[in-house]
């Protein structure tokens, strides 16, 4: 027997070093697992993922101390922002990254403080993106902001959860760079950013229906219009047998 035969067996159950179990996904207590993927039923699913069962643990607050600069950021924000206790729902440290879960209606205020306070100075909004955590109704769509402080060389993640077709204030007045990124999040997930100067689709055509990055938006099974004629999805086409 070669050495490769011994190694897999001993390592199969080991968790990779450095990895912490702690999911960013939040699900309501009544839903423990999901079946299938992309919400496709019947023949529409050609991927073979229909039998998939996914269980997700809910996120837990990280106890203090958080380590690194995270405590400083947390305390500085608490000091500078009077509504801290009300706005920050949860603080999670995972894989050396700090996530502040923010109430969606407070996101603009928090960003304003994060940018302007001298002890925080998050001058650059690196990224705004969305994640669809299918399964939870009130917290299904998460908008994730990554802020970079060039002064202190720090990165912090802000996360706000909204229901489907949920609304939250736009941060474009604080970070003009969020303009296109919020448009992308709207285009892909259907999150409405209130106060955005021009919230239109950006990557998909203007008359597109649906928001493609949502988990219940199928990869296949969509009719395609080509030169005026409608081509049905593969599973609805004629079958030659």
């Amino acid at each position: 027997m070669s050495d490769a035969t011994n190694e897999p067996g001993s390592e199969l159950n080991a968790v990779p070093t450095g990895a912490n179990i702690g999911s960013p996904a939040e699900v309501s207590p009544t839903i423990h697992a999901e079946h299938g993927m992309f919400g496709v039923q019947g023949t529409g699913d050609v991927s073979g993922f229909g039998g998939l069962v996914r269980r997700r643990p809910s996120t837990q607050d990280t106890p203090r101390p958080f380590g690194g600069y995270f405590d400083e950021v947390h305390d500085a924000l608490e000091e500078a922002y009077p509504g801290f206790a009300d706005a920050i729902e949860k603080v999670v440290v995972d894989r050396g990254e700090l996530t502040l879960h923010v109430k969606p209606e407070k996101i603009r205020e928090v960003c304003q403080v994060m940018r302007d306070d001298e002890a925080l100075r998050f001058e650059l909004c690196s990224s705004v993106s969305g994640v669809d955590y299918l399964g939870s109704d009130t917290r299904r769509l998460h908008v994730v902001y990554h802020l970079t402080s060039m002064t202190y060389r720090r990165v912090v993640r802000l996360e706000a959860a909204v229901p489907v077709d949920g609304r939250l204030p736009s941060v474009t007045s604080v970070y003009p760079t969020a303009d296109w990124q919020e448009r992308e999040a709207y285009d892909m997930f259907g999150v409405v950013f209130e106060g955005h100067p021009n919230l239109t689709r950006i990557l998909m055509p203007d008359d597109w229906e649906g928001h493609p990055q949502r988990k219940d938006y199928p990869l296949g099974g969509v009719a395609v219009e080509y030169k005026g004629a409608e081509i049905p999805p593969p599973d609805k086409r004629r079958v030659y047998q």
Binding site: V15, P16, A19, N20, I21, G22, S23, P24, A25, R54, R55, R56, P57, D94, R95, E97, T99, S126, S127, S129, V131, V144, H146, T148, V155, R157
Partner: peptide, 24 residues
């Protein structure tokens, strides 16, 4: 393992950020 990370690297055009989420 479930979780999310953000990695920023210096691309020829600026910061390339990858936000990856795993559900396990």
């Amino acid at each position: 393992p479930p979780g999310q990370v953000y990695v920023g690297i210096e691309h020829p055009r600026g910061e390339l950020g990858v936000h990856a989420v795993s559900d396990g």
